[in-house]
């Protein structure tokens, strides 16, 4: 099992969230998810200014095998998206927790953060999946 950065929060559906210094949230997919999906070939991101709603699909990652929705971990407004992924979606495979981030969001309700899993609980949830 790969190391999961301890400062991240997760959804059981494999999205991660990092709280930035400016209060924005950076969002990506976990190393476990990219590993299961395999080589990513296309990433469809929301647009800056879009409003997203917690647990609704707001992005799509596609591997050679299939397309998978990415769910919004919180509600809020998209502030920035990782444009570099348009030309190099494989960055998500290579660096899921850093260069492979998907978008940043300004949360509309800070209390939603508390509903996410910490790294340990996420680790446990994927261990349960593998049983």
């Amino acid at each position: 099992m790969s190391d999961i950065p301890g400062d991240l929060k997760f959804m059981a559906s494999h999205e991660w969230v990092r709280v930035e210094d400016d209060g924005l949230l950076r969002v990506g997919i976990s190393d476990h998810a990219q590993n299961l999906l395999g080589d990513l070939v296309y990433v469809e991101l929301p647009e800056t200014g879009d409003d997203i709603i917690r647990e609704d699909a707001c992005a799509v990652v596609e591997s050679v095998k299939a397309a998978s929705d990415v769910y919004a971990p919180v509600s809020g407004e998209i502030v920035d998206v990782n444009e570099a992924l348009a030309d190099s979606p494989e960055t998500v495979n290579e660096s899921p927790y850093d260069d492979g981030w998907l978008f940043t969001v300004r949360p509309s309700d800070d209390s939603e953060l508390a509903q996410l899993l910490d790294a340990e609980a996420y680790q446990q949830s994927i261990a349960d999946d593998d049983d």
Binding site: S13, A33, A66, S68
Partner: peptide, 8 residues
């Protein structure tokens, strides 16, 4: 995100 692998 649902992972498209059958867990049969």
């Amino acid at each position: 995100m649902p992972i498209p692998l059958s867990v049969d």
